[in-house]
Write a protein that binds this DNA or RNA. Structure first.
Lengths: 326, 326
DNA sequence: GTGAAAGCGCTAACAA
DNA sequence: TTGTTAGCGCTTTCAC
């Protein structure tokens, strides 16, 4: 593959001059620039980014760590991140941790070894070890829906309280008053906030909170299905508000299998945007726009990479996407 | 960040010795090795992979180009690729082309500039320009479900004929004889093969092929929905076989909206595996296991990277995943 | 405006 | 078993 040296020889100039041309340094005579450029074209020369990175100190690549690339929640956000990064001439490496802390630590170390420009950890995993690891990596980091205990870092959040509130409010608008709730793990701040939104929506509409129709699930389809059985036994319940989409789907399937009039009499809502494949379905949902969250995170990161002296920024995205098919 | 030079100084040895230790060269005295290793530990040293790559000539990173990361077809395959690559100490960069040829070309050029170890283009896009571009990149490439006209390259395919055949056969097993078909673009080899499978399954079961109930769609939900309208007007049709999942979903929704007894009297099948979220649904499907395809592609690529003298390999994966909820 | 030279962190002969 | 040396392709002073 052509190098700067060969170009220099062919163009009859020094390596430095070629370097100036390909980096748009203005201190080059127009004539020289043209000559070099024509040879660049002719030889289909591409600068070796590795060599350049040895000098700048980092590769223009950002590591994104997600818990599960097949989950739309992550995939959507990644799309937003990538869009911004690509535009600013960075690349994105997406890494699937499968929610495994050890894997995440490994990726972070690898990113360090490769001198990546930055890291966006989007994992749901909580771990002191992981925090420790993130602390030790001296490269720019932007968090999504996550705070570290000790280190203050740039971060982007969705408004989970609002999501819980708004989706529940839609159920109420549709005339429901007996609304079961599927909550997530009680230690997760996302889950706590969404649940708080559910409760506040009930309260604001004069509906009593009934802890006996609130259930804690494991965020997957199966646990939504299991809880669904309990919910639909209780015949006065006409709606379900779910912490996340997967459990909502499980509950819906359970109701359907039990012969309930799902989406006609009985409504199901969830507190995050649904995958695109389900957007036209009967689900009610409210959530922040995941692509926008990704884009903002990428912007923060690029700022951090390019001038490391800005104050720490945090931003919360409103749950602007509210959908009610009725 | 610590470098080999500092380590050498601290350990009282030369850079070479440190290099040997971190590369597990056996020609190092055990005592020396231990001393160096303890300092590696102490300083939390990570070798600079950039510098190493300048010598080996490439970064241990593979570029995967997909048309749409939110499509399960790509996401699933990527999971398989990543699994294999990670195990062999390579990383994977996933790039979303959004089916845009220009973007794909840009990524390929970037991969070249970054001296990536290899490329796995998985895009559905056809273009002579792209072929040209792939031709000019002198780095290992493995294709998925794709052949280049001029250049022979390693490639992995799903068995699309079989997928079309098997999914249609399931419909026939369920007692259907009037089976509409939703085909994909007539120039795509994947679509052609799947359609051939559909026809052959009908033929083998003594069912006449009726071109008037075969429709060409655009592979998305919307076009499945539109075609659904035509299909379900025709009241003697009791089943739909679809080239891909998205159109099957569209057709299903259309039937449901028209009040048809979907999944009870009327069956819908598609000629590829469905997204995980739909695995428990009423869809019939047959297709190759996408993760396995990804894993195999990664294996081919690694072979190609590590010894460039093997003959070109092509492999076709049988449509082993056949699912019929009845 | 341009070139020569140093050096980024590492590996790979070659010597010792 | 270890150290010395050269060099990967590029950028970046510093002269001229």
């Amino acid at each position: 593959m052509a190098t700067i040296k060969e170009l220099a020889r062919k163009a009859g100039v020094s390596k430095s001059t070629v370097s100036r041309v390909i980096n748009n340094d203005p201190n080059v005579k127009e004539e020289t620039r043209k000559r070099v450029l024509s040879i660049v074209e002719e030889m289909d020369y591409k600068p070796n980014i590795l060599a350049r990175s040895m000098i700048t100190g980092y590769l223009p690549i950002v590591l994104i760590i997600v818990g599960d690339i097949q989950n739309h929640y992550f995939a959507k956000t990644v799309v937003g991140i990538e869009r911004e990064l690509t535009e600013k001439n960075y690349m994105a490496v997406v890494y699937n941790s499968m929610y495994d802390v050890e894997r995440e630590k490994e990726f972070i170390r690898m990113a360090k070894g490769c001198r990546f420009a930055g890291i966006i950890p989007m994992t749901a995993v909580k771990s002191d070890e992981l925090e420790e690891c993130l602390n030790n990596v001296d490269c720019p980091i932007v968090l999504i829906n996550k705070n570290l205990k000790k280190t203050p870092l740039d971060a982007v959040f969705g408004n989970d309280f609002e999501a819980g509130y708004l989706s529940t409010a839609e159920l109420i608008k549709n005339g429901h008053t007996r609304i079961a709730y599927l909550s997530g793990p009680s230690k997760s701040s996302v889950s706590i906030e969404r649940e708080r939104g559910y409760k506040e929506a009930l309260y604001d509409n004069g509906i009593e909170i009934d802890e006996s129709i609130m259930f804690e699930g494991k965020l997957d389809i199966k646990s939504g299905y299991e809880i669904g059985k309990k919910i639909f036994e209780n015949s006065d319940i006409t709606a379900v508000s779910s912490n996340n989409f997967l459990m909502a789907l499980g509950a819906f399937r359970c109701g359907r299998d039990m012969g309930k009039p799902m989406f006609t009499k009985i409504d199901v809502a969830c507190n995050e945007t649904v995958p695109e494949l389900y957007e036209e379905s009967g689900f009610i949902y409210a959530g922040s726009d995941l692509e926008s969250i990704g884009t903002k995170a990428a912007q923060f990161l690029i700022h951090r990479i390019e001038k490391l002296d800005e104050p720490i920024q945090k931003i919360i995205f409103s749950a602007t996407r509210v959908h009610n098919p009725k």
